[in-house]
Design a protein around this nucleic acid. Structure first.
Lengths: 330, 330
DNA sequence: GCACGGGATGAAAGCGCTTGCAAGTGGGGG
DNA sequence: CCCCCACTTGCAAGCGCTTTCATCCCGTGC
């Protein structure tokens, strides 16, 4: 024994029925008499049978695989989203094939090709740089987050980044800050650009000078960007970053320069990554409902796979006030 | 057109050969004349043909899938390992199916079942609680990290956690600390226990009292554990945590209590997660060569899949001195 | 009592690919 | 000039499953 896993024919033989009947019982695709159902179920039980997804896929023309293109497994933002997303998929017959794009368009295209070859039935894009062009008409539904994509059977989960960034900037302005730097990035998708827009709008409205520098959305880039910011704008009193990782990097720079947060300079991040609450001081940041995003994507994915039109609930971005911002005296 | 993807027969027809020949050309399983090779290749090119892994799998009895059981996609430690690991697999025909076990034995068993059903050809365990028992004799090679597993065709990548923990504790002792708390955890595998052992050994040798409290290896647990530590041992001057996330949590507790790091209490972590260098102050911690671990596992996996015996190089744990420890006066 | 309808079931084809086997081809040696 | 061998190539079976189609059986209505 241990002759590999049992096949449907073995189950059929043992139950005294045909493979077709076993298939019908297992998939509930046709009425089968009580008696045979019982026999089949018992045989399945005894043999420990589980159908081969490969064979099923071949026969049905379906793969039951969904492709998830993620920018980076190591991301404290997308990682948890992936976590929630896969969790949501767990009770379904679909299995996620998650591949990282490593922030490189070339890799993303390769990864996409890989997923195409594997005949994924749907695609989830988590913060990639892919656009409608690159995706072409690959005939499967696409769900995107962190980027806006146009196309048939394509849905994007969009939060109002611009508004949130606007509010975060206002928050700083309302507390007396006028010399506010925004650390943005050329990396990242629409979201990051929207945040920049929100910042710009708030500054413009307040008649303040927009001070923008660019990082790479990671800690190292944040550090460098902060350095550049203070070189160019030494009198800066507040920094608003395009994401938390950038804020962490900036924070270190400030620390090394002996600049206290929030006494000397205030800091506001974006994302509310798990660690933001544990920064010193705890980081005031725009909270993205990470778990909800993952769950929402998961649900939408399920809907899409069932051929339905997904309903993407409106998710809100909210500023969570912690301790990295201080009110400056008039 | 756009009639789904082309099949091997279409390629064959176009190239004026049989499907068998196409297969042979593509897999290099037999000599084929120059001329036909060219014809096939051209047809493949023109049609944009790529073989279906499903069909290939069915025919060969292979799945080209490797299972990766990870404790948690959101982990700042395992996430990057997974990242490096998958990267290493990219140029191979194998595709990773990564499923999270969510720190729960039940889920891990479910996940394992899932992977078994999908006929993965090898299994990688990243910090799960599974032991030889649970794994049973599932006839495929297993690679483990962060846990020691016995069995045929089973290899564990083990770093000397005990020694590293011993050294980290000595580091603290050598700098004059005597009242050192270790925050361990009941979660996690052998590694975490080894760290506890290393701590104990160092304390014992120095004739110091072992002060151990337990967390959950995440920030929240670190916070709580630190709280408990100071309740039980108010005169503590140093904390050595079983991982960095725990240290982050403890750090916040200290901050909230107005205890300065390192002036009032020194802090040493374990892992050297990406963010450790960006803590305030930068965290002194035991560095695990995260990237190397991922790469090593990836290479070993490839070897194992080719039927070879993997060579697991010796990876070292080193203490990286940053700014969270101070020397206490005599 | 007979024809008919409908539900349960099995036989068989086929999903796209690989591979053992046999057939066909051409060249060299006897 | 014929035979044999080595090489290339196609045929066909089969991987494990689904699904169409035909068959069979039973109950019902006239």
């Amino acid at each position: 024994m241990s002759e590999g896993r049992p096949t449907i024919s073995e189950v059929a033989r043992r139950a005294g029925v045909s493979p077709a009947t076993v298939s019908r019982v297992l998939n509930g695709t046709a009425r089968v008499s009580q008696e045979k159902v019982r026999a089949v179920l018992q045989a399945v039980e005894e043999l420990g049978y589980a159908p081969s997804p490969l064979a099923q896929g071949l026969a049905t023309g379906r793969s039951y695989a969904v492709g998830i293109l993620i920018s980076d497994f190591a991301s404290p933002f997308f990682g948890p989203i992936l976590e929630a997303l896969t969790l949501e998929l767990e009770a379904t017959p679909y299995r996620p094939i998650a591949v990282p794009g490593h922030w490189s368009l070339v890799r993303e295209l390769e990864a996409l090709e890989f997923l195409k070859v594997h005949r994924v039935e749907a695609l989830v894009l988590l913060g990639t740089a892919l656009d409608g062009e690159a995706l072409g008409n690959l005939g499967i539904p696409i769900l995107a987050f962190g980027q806006r994509i146009e196309g048939p059977k394509t849905w994007s989960l969009c939060l109002d980044n611009q508004k949130a960034a606007y509010q975060a900037t206002r928050y700083l302005i309302d507390r007396g800050h006028t010399r506010i730097v925004h650390i943005s990035s050329h990396r990242g998708g629409m979201d990051v650009r929207d945040r920049l827009l929100g910042y710009r709008k708030a500054m413009r409205e307040a008649g303040l000078e927009a001070r923008v520098v660019y990082g790479d959305l990671e800690e190292g880039g944040g550090y460098l960007a902060a350095e550049e910011a203070f070189r160019r704008y030494p009198d800066t009193t507040a920094i608003f970053t395009a994401n938390d990782q950038t804020a962490f990097g900036a924070r270190l720079y400030l620390y090394e320069q002996g600049l206290r947060v929030p006494e000397d300079v205030s800091l506001v991040g974006f994302d509310d990554v798990a660690l933001s609450a544990y920064q010193i001081p705890p980081l005031t940041t725009v909270r993205q409902p990470i778990r909800d995003i993952g769950v929402t994507l998961g649900r939408a994915l399920r809907a899409v796979l069932e051929g339905e039109v997904p309903t993407l609930p409106r998710l809100e971005l909210t500023l969570v006030e912690r301790a990295s911002v201080r009110e400056v005296g008039a």
